[in-house]
Amino acid sequence: MKKFGRHLRARFLQGFSVAVITYLMIPLALIIILSFNKPRGRQNTSWNQFSIDAWTNICRDPTICRAFSLSVQIAILVTIVATILGTLISFALVRHKFRGKDSATLGVFIPLSTPDVIVGASLLALFLNIFIPLGFWTILIAQITFTISFVVVVVNARLTGMDQRLEQAAMDLYATPFQTFRYVTFPLALPGIAAAALISLSLSFDDYIITSFNSGRLVTFPLYVWNAAQRGIPPQVNVIASIMFLGSLGLVALAAIIAKRRKLKTLV
């Protein structure tokens, strides 16, 4: 009887988890389905006719592709800078003892827990006060600022779980601090850094609120989607979102296969 109860509870948990993931997937299913739709009017909200037109003509409206490529450029630059800055902070916080560590932790956490409107608005206030024209550079600055803290969190999670005895062993075997870092610490931390970079990429690519404050006249992909939402989002936007979503799943699957081949046990 008791065993039956435990079995029931496990089934409940499993069913609940599947339901939550389904909930997260519902809008994606709709986005993918409507990417194959030929909308009747401007609004691509109800099924009309199957068509692969949007998939073969992604750049019919060149502003979509311009916005997309601008977002990709920005996301790559943001990822590089934020990942480096955040990883350095994370190493200091996890691996070193120093005065003011609590304040440093708080200094990383406050940006993370500040509402986006405030991050965007305060940077806009700064740029207006010191007369910096809004555009590419201000978007870049704003996005790097809010991404750094996320990098720290993700890399921290990896570094805290790492066995420090491996590095001690390397030192015992007369590895220099640089060699220890190069051949032991860094390879072990790499999955965490890679995960942080991936999250930066998605945060930057998808940011609307903070960017909208600091973009001036430039239109990134999310800004394009927002503007288009008023008069109807063309199916090409659905195509791009579908490619991003399915592409990220594909990349992760690929990474998993490679990792399995190399018999690495952990991926993330």
């Binding site: 809008p27 994606l28 709709l30 109800s46 999250i199 690519f205 998808d206 989607v225 979503f245």
Partner: peptide, 28 residues
């Protein structure tokens, strides 16, 4: 475990504006 983790994070790559807009369509 990791498959589920990926499925939870992957929607981030499809614009959240578009996903919220999809809810608008679903709930209309």
């Amino acid at each position: 475990k990791y498959l589920m983790l990926v499925l939870i994070v992957a929607p981030f790559f499809a614009s959240f504006l578009l996903r919220t807009n999809a809810w608008k369509t679903i709930l209309s």
